[in-house]
């Protein structure tokens, strides 16, 4: 990915030299033109085209923001409810992710999910122990972690 960005920048600088205009707007035009050229030749790279990875990162950030807001609404409900009738507990969650940074991002996302908080990551990086505010919602939480977060993180790293 970094090689592709560097190549894109080199193409933009080449465009600046061809035009003989040294300013920011020429660089941006050259960058966009270089992007088009690289899109045409995308099959020659070993990696996939880097713009799709950038889009995946932006989607992950949007998921972060959405989860933060919905988790706040659920905390608000629990705190302001007149009776404390939730059933907290710790459950184990097996993750498919392997790299360290992926697990870090996943546990950050889980912490910002409604009603869940990571307590411990097991030594072999395969099981996350999650404290849930209401253990009755556990199945739903596991489902959303599996289908939304893990998929979005894999989309970035694949």
């Amino acid at each position: 990915m970094s090689f592709q960005i560097l190549l894109n920048a080199v193409l933009a600088v080449t465009w600046i030299f061809l035009k003989n205009e040294f300013d920011g707007s020429t660089f941006i035009i050259g960058y966009v033109l270089g992007l088009c050229i690289m899109f045409v030749f995308r099959h020659f790279f070993n990696d996939r085209f880097y713009l799709s990875r950038v889009i995946a990162v932006i989607r992950l950030l949007l998921i972060f923001a959405r989860e933060l807001i919905s988790s706040n609404i659920s905390v608000l409900k629990v705190v302001l409810k007149p009776k404390l009738d939730m059933q907290p507990g710790i459950f184990a969650f097996e993750t498919m992710l392997t790299k360290d940074w992926e697990i870090t991002v996943l546990s950050n996302l889980i912490t910002l999910t409604p009603g869940t908080l990571v307590v411990e990551v097991s030594a072999d990086n395969r099981i996350l122990y999650i404290h849930a505010m209401d253990i009755a919602d556990k199945a739903e939480a596991v489902d959303s972690i599996k289908h939304t977060f893990e998929k979005a993180i894999m989309e970035v790293s694949k």
Binding site: L68, I69, S71, N72, V75, L76, V78, V79, L80, L84, M86, P88, T111, L112, G115, L117, V119, H131, M133
Partner: peptide, 29 residues
């Protein structure tokens, strides 16, 4: 308002773990 709710959460909720839920989410947002 969210700060107020997280402060109420610290007072009302029963143990460290559930209080942590209130603090780490509401005060961030």
């Amino acid at each position: 308002f969210l700060f107020l709710v997280s402060a109420f959460g610290i007072i009302r909720l029963p143990d460290v773990y559930t209080r942590n839920h209130a603090v780490s989410k509401s005060s961030t947002l």
